[in-house]
Design a protein around this nucleic acid. Structure first.
Lengths: 356, 356
DNA sequence: CTGAAAGCGCTAACAC
DNA sequence: GTGTTAGCGCTTTCAG
């Protein structure tokens, strides 16, 4: 078989099959019925010429490319990776291709992204904002449909989210029910990160639980994390251990942070759960395999993603139908606590060794 | 500001600025010099109209879209996630967008992908093949430039890889130097997975080390893994423990598999490294934070990815310059052993408890 | 059911 | 420096 450097076009296929380009198009899209004999001839010509339709041309003509964009903070983080996997899988089933961008690297990246030239080649955008900057959302009506995932409160774009505040309260309550009294919050605000949407809500839920239990919230136990990685979390917990404040539990705002906490506590000679309880959030695969396995907040990834894709698809159809855009929708994905060994039992607690 | 449902085109901008579309194009691409005053008027018009260039049109005209495709087995796996992250980051710096596909779901997916319609919207493809099927590679000349990452031996497409066989030999030798004598290989062939490229080479390296040490290779210690996930590996090791064969070390073919091994061994009451040594491969972030931290094979992710992107870029230019495609290139990325606690000391070994 | 013509938005080639 | 013309490959009218 020859190796054509320049690709065959529909015109070539049409010529070879002895039909018009339109007929080739009909065979391809299946929109219009084509007589069996004709379709076979066209199909044969396509095969012989190794024809592949040019999607740029189709996109130009149709105003749709079949590509959606997905912007996540950092694809290397377990939760994002999990989400990316599920999105690609489900998008594939719907015949959509997926383009990824990352937003965590620089703060403006998020803003950039929505006003970005590239945006124009995608039919829609799934955005997982780290921080809620109004400026980001404001431009939403100049854009292809956007679905926000995560807890960004606004009413301009559709969104799908887990009720982080409630989940965080519940998991903190679980710690308290085990007998913990001095619960540290890992991922709590750092200077300059107050805008971090998810962290903010999870902190509120944590405070809700303490308040309801009649406990004082100690600001010393709210531990900021510079880098939301395992290493960043480990460093933050090591720092906490130098603060000379006692604690008997750590509510980490993501599983990744909890992994860092487990590591730092172990290195400090503290046992989980005998001395300190630890919980995570998201239930990524590794959470079930840590030592000890991690109690965490779980929710169905596929539901989360299919809700986002459904919302996006609905908007596509609106645009095609030239109907007015409906009001923005919000879908809440149910969550549940998964109890594992990291919160099994009453913690003895960590007590600083006096020396300041 | 009005919210135009239909986007402004270059023609609109040109009209508003009182220039021709070509001038707008010149301002945008920067290829041709434009007088300062004119450029400002055009810029102003673009801002007012909230103009975003249509990349489908540009792609159609230029024959390049600025998008590359990346096909990985499973984005949720730590190593793939890491790679995806690095690729997106570096592609972004080069002004490229990245589209992802997954290949692990179905065996034909890989083959599908290369002959896929969608392929025509991307300028090049980075492919991490799980299994080397000739059929996949054969079609390479009908495609945009392809760079293979991973150890697929062929000479049609460029590739970048780590010398898995040597690395695997080295890490096995390290185990032996610690006193291990019965080393299990986790990720060894499973019926129907013989074609798994990476696994095959790592198994060879493992066998090399045993042979050089004058040790017999026990097929019972070659443990197949159905699903290359933490859970899959844990299950495989649990199965190994029922085989009633002694062993004192586990060479896992990826870090993810090693995580599963650590879990299963711990559940069985075996200590690492006191009873059994464990190693991984890839040095993902979590490897430094397991209990105990994992000895593994590391290589610089950024070098790996930039080599792949360089190869791809070089091919782009060939095509644009209509030069003949040069011969396929291969880049080997250096690796190194990272020694951590999981191989610290001489293992006592696991001895089955008699009952068959 | 099939063909002919027109145009999506952009830029290379060529005037001026 | 800037404008004009033409066409990338496809699909949507509209005829037949």
């Amino acid at each position: 078989m020859a190796s054509p450097r320049s690709r065959a076009t529909m015109k070539d296929v049409a010529a070879r099959a002895g039909v018009s380009p339109k007929t080739v198009s009909n065979v391809l899209t299946g929109a219009v019925a084509v007589r069996e004999g004709t379709r076979e001839r066209v199909q044969a010509a396509m095969d012989e010429l190794d024809f592949v339709p040019n999607l740029s041309a189709r996109g130009l003509r149709n105003g749709r490319t079949g590509i959606i964009g997905v912007a996540l903070p950092d694809l290397a983080t377990a939760f994002s990776a999990d989400l990316a996997h599920t999105i690609v899988e489900q998008a594939h089933e719907r015949g959509l291709a997926v383009q990824f961008e990352e937003t965590a690297a620089e703060p403006e990246r998020e803003h950039d992204l929505v006003s970005r030239a590239r945006t124009h080649l995608i039919d829609g955008l799934i955005l997982n904002p780290v921080r809620l900057e109004d400026s980001v959302i404001e431009r939403v009506d100049h854009l292809p449909p956007v679905v926000l995932i995560g807890e960004v409160e606004q009413h301009r774009a559709d969104r799908v989210y887990v009720d982080s505040r409630v989940a965080s309260r519940e998991i903190t309550e679980h710690m308290l029910s085990r007998g913990a009294r001095r619960v540290a919050a890992l991922g709590g605000a750092v200077r300059g990160q107050e805008g971090k949407a998810t962290a903010g809500l999870r902190l509120l839920g944590y405070l809700d639980a303490l308040r309801d239990a009649g406990l004082e919230a100690d600001p010393q136990l709210q531990v900021g994390v510079e880098q939301w990685t395992i290493g960043g979390a480990a460093a933050a917990v090591e720092e906490l251990l130098t603060r000379q404040v006692p604690f008997d539990a750590v509510v980490a705002f993501t599983d990744t942070l909890a992994f860092g906490a487990l590591h730092a506590l172990h290195r400090a000679g503290l046992r989980v759960p005998e001395d300190v309880l630890v919980t995570g959030f998201d239930d990524v695969e590794h959470a079930a395999f840590t030592l000890p396995p991690l109690t965490t907040v779980a929710f169905t990834r596929t539901d989360y993603v299919s809700a986002a894709l459904d919302l996006l698809s609905a908007r596509f159809e609106e645009r095609v139908g030239r109907r007015d855009d409906g009001p923005s929708q919000a879908v809440v994905i149910p969550h549940r606590l998964v109890l594992r060994e990291s919160t099994q039992g009453t913690p003895a607690g960590y007590v600083p060794t006096g020396s300041p």
